[in-house]
Structures are given as structure tokens and as C-alpha cells.
Design a protein around this nucleic acid. Structure first.
Lengths: 337, 337
DNA sequence: GTGAAAGCGCTAACAT
DNA sequence: ATGTTAGCGCTTTCAC
């Protein structure tokens, strides 16, 4: 492994100058810089990140704490983060927290504190007070995407608003008997997003003078299969007979579309269906949805963290709201259309 | 940030002993180790990874080079890697290579050479000779998952065999007019897996004395939507009339099922459909597939790398074959059934 | 603009 | 079993 002194020797300068030249500092003459770069290039020199980090205190590495890697929403979001971060020449270190409490504790208490990263993005994690404080005490920029968090700078999405918007769309189409496929209460212990969406749903209904009916709710697990099962329950239940279904995720909405078709419902003639997310399959299934731009969420979080990192000055990031947008496609229509 | 000497002072030992005690070396008495651990715990001490790496030459970090994060196959595989690696107390650093050649070059020439990782897993990358040699010259364990590679230790899957197995299943069901949805030749420039599958398909056909017909092939882009479009083409083409379709991925196979249904075909009565991958949706769509256990591929690669890392001795990993398995479900049946 | 030299916070020989 | 000490390969004052 060729080191900095070899480059220094080759370029006829000191190691200090090599360091400055290569890291783009300004106190280097153009000619020297060129000579150094040429030498480094020729020798195949690349700085050792551990040595550089130890000396400088900066790692050029962002930690991403994420609960799932194999779900569309999360991997899309991660993809958005990766693109930004990479573009800035930073690496990403992944901390995949699982339901295993002990492992999760380790991530917060040990892994993140090893000084391996300059900043942390915590994705869609319901962070307890203790965990939030641990993150804060890291002494580095931290940003949480998702659920509201009193303690941390947050990029949050208005899940109540998301649920309300989808529901208002259905109401505007004349639907009054609207079914909802949402979170299993059990699922919700550690993850409040779904119940916020349900809350938005009920809010919209009540605002229109419609009382939510318990028999029009069915829990699902946020997969296509779960949506399929939930929709069959909902549609099959005597006395329920919704004219529209709002599912708390696009994957469940797609499952619901397939279930409806299976049962002989035409979508949207007999049944309107709307989801939430902006899933890539939504276009294919012609699904009306409220897009929350997951890749954009990741990109934005990354940009924010990177900005703080470059600012050396402790900027004030705080709470920002993420955008969302109703995308009306063919799965919803006026009642009786 | 509390350092090792603070812990040493608190525990009344030298820093060397703290280092040994905390990293589980054997030359420490139980009582000392306990005292050290207690002190570290109490002071909230966590070793600095850069300092530790610089001194020891080990980072406890695995680099994963991967072309997509937001495709099911890749994120599932990554998930498999993450689980193993995390369990062993290693971190993962992600290198998401994009089609951008310049960026890709950077990953190989710079990022991976920064000594940030102890080993590298390269996922489903068609690595050129130069890139392969760069990886080799890193002086650390490297393993490639996917396409065969002459130069690198590889966990490879027999894509020809995969294609043949799926096709043989259809042949065994009595089908002779089998359509194939495979890779766009353009897609294939940098990624030979799909054409290997096609090769297996044609091999199986010829072995059974059936000559492949060009009009029974249609390219697809490995998405549900792409499979849908391809199947419509295939099924609509005058004179083609396949009784079965083999798609080179489950996502395309699912698209094909939806297309078939759309066109009024009953699956499997009028048309059998088989895919490849073992996609999670396969169960839901009752799709016959050749499962290649992507999460298992990741786990196995990770285990191999970790094993080499612990072995200090330069073991001989080399070429290993990954398992695959035909999973017969409801989307295929005997012809005329 | 450039160089000398003092660390950054650990680990690993080598002693004891 | 434990302590002493010399680095690991850089970055960053501080001089010039």
C-alpha cells in the first residue's frame, strides 16, 4: 500500500503539502497541486480512511439506520439516500435494526458510537426517548425520517393529512360507504404511522358528516397478500358493502384490487380503490394513490445531513414537512359511474 | 468522548489491558476483565473505530458493491448479507454502483481502496477484467455473487440450469409450444444472466427434439409491467399460440399471468406460466418458479467472507455453486388439463 | 505557499 | 497476566 510519504517524495514536497493538495485546500499553488496529483495518480495512492479519520475527526461516511431492506418503500428511500450521499463522495454504513431488542440496543449504544460516521439518518423508526437522546448525544448531525419526534430534527410526513387526502378524494367522488384497510393494532405498538392514516380517514369522514363504521375497517399487514385478504373480508362481510376502499399502502391497495376482481367487482365501476405511497406498481395497476415520494424523502434527508456537515457551523435543521400529492388514476371513479 | 486511558485509570490497569479485556483476548484474568468491562460500561466507553483500525489494520466492516437497491432480488439479497454480517458484529458499507461509468470507476479505484473495509462482496455485477483485478489487488477477501468470473472467487448460480429446469418442467407437462420472455439483447451487454437462462431454455427444448421458434421469444425488462407487455405481444402474435410461457424472472411471470387473464386465458387451463427467482409474490399468485433463494445467496456470501476473515490463514474459497429448486404451484399444469 | 513535527486513540510487540 | 512503548498513516497547527 503506497502511503502519503511516498507521494511526497515522488512529488518533491512534504507530506503536509500532499495532504493539502489532495484534499483540495487552498494554500497550495496550482503547479504544486498538479505535480502532487500526478504523482498520486501514478503511484495509485488513495488515502487511508482510518488514518485520515483519526487525524481529522471526519469520516466521510453517513450512517443509515433502517428497519427493513427488503420492502419497497424502504429500499426506494435508501436508494434516494445512496444517490445523494455517493454524489458527495461519502460512503454509507448500514445499520439494519431488527425487532431483536438486544441487537437494536447494540446499534444505538455501540455501533453508532464507534465514530465510524459523521452523521446519522434514522429511517421510519419509532424512536424512544432514550434512543433519541442517545442519537443526540452522538455529537453529530442526526435526522429522522418519518414519525414525529419531539427530540430530534425530523423530516416528517403528515400521515393524518395523507389519510385525509385519500379519503376526501373518495368523498368527493360521492362515496359514503368507504372501507379502510389499515394497520393491525398489534403492528402499531412500535409504529404509529398507520393509525395516523386511519385517524385522517376518520377525520375526513366526520368532517363530511359521515360516521365511521367499525365493520368497514379491516387490518392488513402492508403486503399485497395482506391487502388481498383484508379486502375479501371487507367485501364479504354481510352488511358492510362499501362502494370504495382506502388502503393505507399501495401494496395493500393492489391486493384489494385483485381481491375485488376475484369476487367479481369491477374497479372502478363497482368499487373505487385508493392507496398511499406512490409505489412503482401503482402506474401499472392504474391505482389512485397519494404519492409520498420515498426516493425524494431519502434524497432530502441526505442533502440536509450533508449540508450540515459542510456547514461546520451548527445550523438549525429541525422539523420539516415532506410533500405528498394525490395522483388520480383509473381505480377510482364517481359513485355509480 | 471518553478514551481508553480514562477507562484504564478507572479500572486501575494499563491501556493495553483495557484493549485486551474489551476485545476478548485471552491473556486477561477474569477479575481484571470484569473490572475493565464495568468501568467501560460505567463511563460509556466505546472504542474509536478509526483509531482501532489504524492500529490493528482491521475495520470490522464489509463492503457490498451492488447495482440496485430498489429491486426485490437485490434488496432481498442485501438483507441476507446484512443479517449475517451484523450478527458477527461487522458493519456494512454500501457501494451502489450506477450505470454511470465514471462513478463506477471511482468506486473501484478509490472508494474500495480507502481501507475502509476488510472484505468485499460484489453482487450481480458483470465485472470486467480490469475491475476484477482491481478487486483482487485490494489484498482482502473478495467474493462475487452471480455471473461466472474467471478471476474472482465466485458464488455462482447455474443460470443455464435454471432455465433448463423451468423448461423441462413445462415439457414434462406435455407442452411443446413454449413461449419465452427473456432479456432484451440491449440489456444484456453488461449482464449475461438472462441470455444464459434463454440458452438453458433452448437447450431443454432441443434435448426434447423441439426446435425453438423465434416468434415464441419476446424480450422484457424484468419488471411486472415488462412481463405484462411481453406476454401480450407473445400471446397476440398470429401463429405463435404458445400453450405455456417461461419467463426469466418471477416479476415478468406475474406480469404475464395478469396479461393472460386480461386476454381471457385461464391459467393454467389454457396457459401454463413459470418463472425464476422465488419472489415473495410468487406464493400469492400461485406461481410455479425455480427458486434461487436470494436471501440465502447473500447469507452464504457473507458467511464465506466472514469465515475467511476469521481464518487469518488464506483459505481457498473459489468457485461455489448456489442451489436452486423447482417449486411447482398452480400456474402450470398438464397440457389440455 | 510550504515544511517540521506533534498528535489523533488505539493495538501489538516486547518486557516483566 | 499485565505494563511499556513504538508505531499505525494521516492532518493540522505553527514556523518560516
Amino acid at each position: 500500500m503506497v502511503g502519503i510519504d511516498e507521494v511526497a517524495r515522488a512529488a518533491g514536497v512534504s507530506t503536509a503539502t500532499v495532504s493539502r493538495a489532495l484534499s483540495g485546500k487552498h494554500n497550495v499553488s496550482d503547479s504544486t497541486r498538479e505535480r502532487v496529483q500526478e504523482a498520486a495518480q501514478r503511484l495509485g495512492y488513495v488515502v487511508s480512511s482510518s488514518a485520515s479519520s483519526l487525524a481529522s475527526g471526519r469520516t466521510r461516511n453517513i450512517g443509515v439506520v433502517i428497519p427493513h431492506l427488503d420492502r419497497w418503500f424502504f429500499s426506494t428511500l435508501l436508494s434516494g439516500i445512496a444517490e445523494q450521499v455517493t454524489r458527495a463522495g461519502y460512503d454509507i454504513t448500514l445499520y439494519n435494526v431488527t425487532p431483536d431488542r438486544e441487537h437494536r440496543r447494540q446499534v444505538f449504544e455501540t455501533f453508532l458510537r464507534r465514530q465510524r460516521v459523521d452523521g446519522v439518518i434514522a429511517v421510519a423508526l419509532e424512536l424512544g426517548e432514550h434512543e433519541s437522546k442517545t442519537l443526540l448525544s452522538l455529537g453529530m448531525p442526526v435526522i429522522a425520517i418519518g414519525g414525529p419526534n419531539e427530540l430530534l430534527p425530523t423530516l416528517s410526513i403528515d400521515d393524518v393529512g395523507l389519510g385525509r387526502l385519500a379519503t376526501e378524494h373518495l368523498l368527493a367522488m360521492g362515496h359514503l360507504d368507504i372501507g379502510h384497510i389499515g394497520a393491525d393494532p398489534e403492528f402499531d405498538i412500535d409504529f404509529h404511522i398507520p393509525s395516523s392514516r386511519r385517524h385522517g380517514f376518520e377525520l375526513a369522514l366526520r368532517t363530511s358528516g359521515v360516521e365511521p363504521r367499525p365493520e368497514l375497517f379491516e387490518p392488513g399487514d402492508f403486503t399485497i397478500e395482506g391487502g388481498f385478504r383484508a379486502a375479501k373480508q371487507l367485501l364479504g362481510r354481510p352488511g358492510a358493502s362499501p362502494t370504495a376502499i382506502f388502503a393505507a399502502s399501495d401494496e395493500m391497495a393492489i391486493g384489494a384490487m385483485l381481491a375485488a376482481r376475484d369476487l367479481g367487482y369491477r374497479v372502478p365501476e363497482d368499487l373505487s380503490i385508493a392507496g398511499i405511497d406512490g409505489h412503482e406498481l401503482g402506474r401499472f395497476f392504474d391505482l389512485t394513490t397519494v404519492d409520498q415520494f420515498p426516493a425524494g424523502q431519502g434524497a432530502r434527508a441526505a442533502a440536509t445531513i450533508l449540508h450540515e456537515l459542510e456547514q461546520s457551523a451548527g445550523s438549525v435543521p429541525d422539523r420539516e414537512e415532506l410533500p405528498y400529492e394525490l395522483v388520480v388514476r383509473g381505480s377510482t371513479a364517481r359513485i355509480g359511474a
